[in-house]
């Protein structure tokens, strides 16, 4: 095992077995903005085996307060192309690929293929719209792939692990009152770079735990980071048959 991973391999409860699991895992990161940059950085440096980055956007000047995989020289260039290059340089052992497109209902089954060989151990939602998230949740649930959601605005963040393979899972939509699932977001979204870094790091930490089996993640718990008072709260929800996202996906849903 490379000395590159010594500092984590030697942590109590981690070991070479966990590191090998990480090396054998494959992740898809949807969105390489503020959260995606942090998630891609920490997961690649931790030694994830394969990583695919998906985003259709180009680098803009206003991204540079938080999206640290890019520099001023990258403005106007594809985020995915720049991020793939940055990750390859940072973590040459990781096999990293890119999909230069936004996730849509038309390409969802291609971006997030089923559970046959070549699929993902986990998908990380670093997206910035509820519509795209709805597509990600429905596709991951249909293909039985765990999905780790993150979002951040201003000083606040939220993280939710959704594993359709576990009992009593809920989705992001189960946390919303029905009408609100179609409430448009407020544009533009303001965010402190450090907030995106903290929330992306929480996601990477949880992903490493789940991928290595060293940590069991709670399936019905949204972690709410409040950077105004540096507190992390927790919220839970009941799976709802009326959920606009997962309501029609299973027959065991309860009202």
């Amino acid at each position: 095992m490379s000395a590159r991973y010594d500092r984590q391999v030697n942590m109590p409860g981690f070991g070479i077995k966990a590191q090998k699991k990480l090396q054998n895992s494959s992740v898809l990161i949807l969105g390489v903005g503020g959260l995606g940059c942090a998630v891609a950085t920490y997961l690649s440096m931790a030694g994830v085996g394969r990583m695919t980055l998906c985003d259709g956007d180009v680098v803009g000047l206003s991204n540079l307060n938080r999206q640290f995989l890019y520099t001023g020289d990258d403005i106007g260039k594809s985020k995915v192309d720049c991020a793939v290059r940055a990750v390859e340089k940072m973590a040459p052992r990781v096999k990293v690929g890119g999909i230069n497109a936004y996730l849509t209902s038309d390409n969802a089954d291609v971006v997030v293929p089923g559970t046959q060989a070549g699929s993902y151990s986990m998908v990380l939602d670093c997206l910035d719209s509820f519509d795209a998230r709805k597509i990600a949740i429905q596709t991951c649930f249909a293909h039985n792939i765990p999905l780790l959601h993150g979002a951040c605005e201003e000083y606040q963040g939220q993280v939710l692990y959704m594993d359709p393979g576990l009992k009593d899972y809920v989705c992001l939509g189960c946390y919303l009152e029905k009408k609100q699932a179609s409430t448009p977001m407020i544009h533009p979204v303001w965010v402190l770079g450090a907030t995106a870094g903290i929330v992306g790091s929480m996601m990477a930490s949880m992903a490493v735990g789940a991928l290595t089996g060293t940590r069991m993640l709670k399936n019905n718990r949204i972690y709410c980071y409040d950077g105004m008072c540096q507190e992390i709260g927790k919220l839970s929800a009941h799976r709802s048959a009326g959920c606009p996202v997962c309501g029609n996906l299973g027959s065991d849903a309860e009202q």
């Binding site: 503020g34 959260l35 995606g36 951040c152 605005e153 963040g157 946390y175």
Partner: peptide, 8 residues
Amino acid sequence: CNRFLIGG
């Protein structure tokens, strides 16, 4: 009452 976040 908390804001439900969308940004990424």
